[in-house]
């Protein structure tokens, strides 16, 4: 037995909320996913910046150490 065969078509006014809900769910899923990924990307960006800072500090410290060492 086909359930579709016994269910009459909904009037566009009644069907619209279901259609909107389905497309909204899809949009929400994509947006939530993109937001989560953007947050992760921001974290990676912060890590890169921190890494750069630490490397700069090390380079500066090494330069400072070279200047203080006596030349033989």
């Amino acid at each position: 037995m086909s359930a579709l065969a016994v269910s009459p078509a909904l009037a566009p006014g009644k069907a619209a909320p279901y259609v909107i809900a389905a497309y909204a769910v899809f949009l929400a899923i994509v947006l939530i996913y993109v937001a989560i990924m953007a947050r992760r990307l921001t974290r990676t960006e912060k890590d890169v910046q921190q890494l750069k800072r630490e490397l700069d500090q090390r380079a500066a410290a090494a330069e400072h150490k070279d200047e203080r060492e006596p030349v033989l």
Binding site: A15, Y18, V19, A22
Partner: peptide
Amino acid sequence: LDADQGFIQKIFYLHVPL
């Protein structure tokens, strides 16, 4: 519009590809 389902059939173009 689908003859049997009407406007609700528009979900088909989202649900089935998903």
